[in-house]
Amino acid sequence: MANVPQTVASPVGSPIAQTARKGWAFAREAPLLPMVILASILFLAIFADLLPLHDPEVSVKDKLTGRPVAGTLPPAWMDGGTWRMPLGTDFQSRDILSRVIYGARVSLIVGLVGTLAAGAIGTVLGMLAGYMGKWWDQVIMRITDAWLALPTLIFAIFLASIRGAGLWNIVIILTLVFWSRYARQVRAEVLSLRERDFVKLAEVTGASRVRIMLKHILPNVMNTVMVLFSLTIGVAIIIEASLSFLGVGVPPPTPAWGLMMADGKGPLIGGDWWISVFPGIAIMLLVLAANLLGDWLRVRLDPQLRNR
């Protein structure tokens, strides 16, 4: 195979093309509804700057007078609304539609990066605990147990009061909160993998422990990690929203869904519902799509569940 000239495309294509094709075939099997929701949210979040939107962080100005338009304007289809601000404005006259769209960035970054980082740390620690055993196992698992003894949200608030408000701080907080879930699951999986023949054989041939963990154990726990990853994203997004809602998450004026809902709580009691409700629906759609995909992935990757 090594002698095949680069210019002649082999029938299977390069490894990258192969992986891409496999990935695409995999994605085509995925359920349609959550894929469409996720794709549209991703699209809007990435290209928000190119869309004809008002600035999410400053009040919308009246075209004639140049002064800010009225605050808490209702959505366009209600009395007093205009199509310039389709979903209305908040009490600082900022455009809700634009804030909801830009807010997707915060939720996506926090949800994806936070759970990925937590997954990486948790997987490494879980593998070390499960494969190395002895003191590694005792120390890592005792800390993991203590870590899991605090309720997620309370722990996140606790960490938030150390790190202070800020987008990347929330990412760090979610990483610190969620690694323990991965560690526990991965360790359990490694404990049974360790006894399997292919690991024993690798040990007999003199492979180093690091090599066994990377080449033989890691590929076999990836399914578990991926399922856990997809099921944790939704929780992470809700935790971020809760932190922002409580005022210890992303600082204003950044558009974040939890923050917008907190802003809208006062007006809501006066009957002006749109400030809180639209970001709430956005959270719901995103988490719903993430969970649906997670469920599908769980069934797809676990042969025992496939026929249920």
Binding site: G234, I238, A241, S242, F245, M261, G264, K265, L268, I269, G270, G271, W273, S276, V277, G280, I283, M284, V287, L288, N291, L292
Partner: peptide, 23 residues
Amino acid sequence: ALLGLAIPGFFVALVLILIFGVK
């Protein structure tokens, strides 16, 4: 089951307040 896990409690709270407390 899906909505239970996807709708954050505080959003449920706000919608309840809007319907049963305000309207």
